[in-house]
């Protein structure tokens, strides 16, 4: 049973057909790499897959069930990392992550959050308002969710490598491979060349006028 699959998905944005008849299927333990030039509709595709946006036509299935009918089941098994990080600038990294875990019904204690931030090289920055961190550090804070919501079945990651330094890219790549080898499914977009030591499915979207 595929973790996530679609049937004849098409999306129209501002009167432009981004893509149509997209059929994809992601099993547990597999990595789908969505490629395409700027404006091809990668982000729109991912937002449709999360259920944030309704497609023009077509259906998205989570474990062979329409995502609109899964409700909380889909929410508790999904981590979405988008262009907008979803961290409030006035709150500290720890406060942001604690709130995120509580609202997503993930049980963690504060120690786990501190340890995760340590893995992401944010030691000493845990209690500073996120707005005063650098762009890369803010992204690391948001990426900490991947460590905290360990039992999610699916990650949908939109350009997770942007603004990360070499060390950050390595940490994230290792985490991705670790997660995939434990049976997680990942859908990812990236303009950096994806150099993961793992079999990759590819989906290429063309820019249409």
């Amino acid at each position: 049973m595929a973790v996530l699959s679609t049937q004849n998905l098409s999306v129209i944005k501002r009167d432009r057909l981004l893509f149509d008849q997209v059929n994809l299927s992601v099993d547990s333990g597999s990595l789908l790499y969505v490629k395409g030039p700027n404006g091809a509709g990668k982000t729109s595709l991912l937002r449709v897959l999360t259920g944030l946006v309704e497609p023009e036509s077509g259906i998205v299935f989570y474990q062979d069930k329409k995502i609109q009918k899964c409700g909380e089941d889909y929410a508790t098994n999904l981590v979405y990392f988008g262009h907008k990080l979803g961290v409030s600038g006035s709150l500290s990294a720890v406060e942001n992550l604690q709130y995120w875990c509580d609202s997503h019904q993930v049980k963690v204690d504060t120690n786990t959050i501190y340890q995760t931030l340590e893995k992401l090289n944010l030691v000493g920055l845990e209690d500073i308002p996120v707005a005063s961190l650098s762009a890369g550090q803010q992204r690391r804070t948001a990426l900490a969710r991947l460590w905290l919501k360990a039992d999610a079945k699916l990650w949908i990651l939109d350009e997770p490598f942007t603004a990360l330094d070499v060390q950050g890219i390595n940490v994230l790549s290792d985490k991705l491979i670790d997660y995939l080898s434990k049976g997680g499914a990942v859908i990812i977009t990236s303009h950096q060349l994806l150099e993961l030591d793992y079999p990759t499915q590819e989906l290429t979207l063309e820019y249409r006028i």
Partner: peptide, 17 residues
């Protein structure tokens, strides 16, 4: 406004609450 701009709103929508 702030929640929309920093993306907290989309995380809230996806949280299952």
């Amino acid at each position: 406004r702030d929640d929309f701009q920093d993306g907290s709103l989309e995380q809230l929508i996806l949280s299952g609450v």
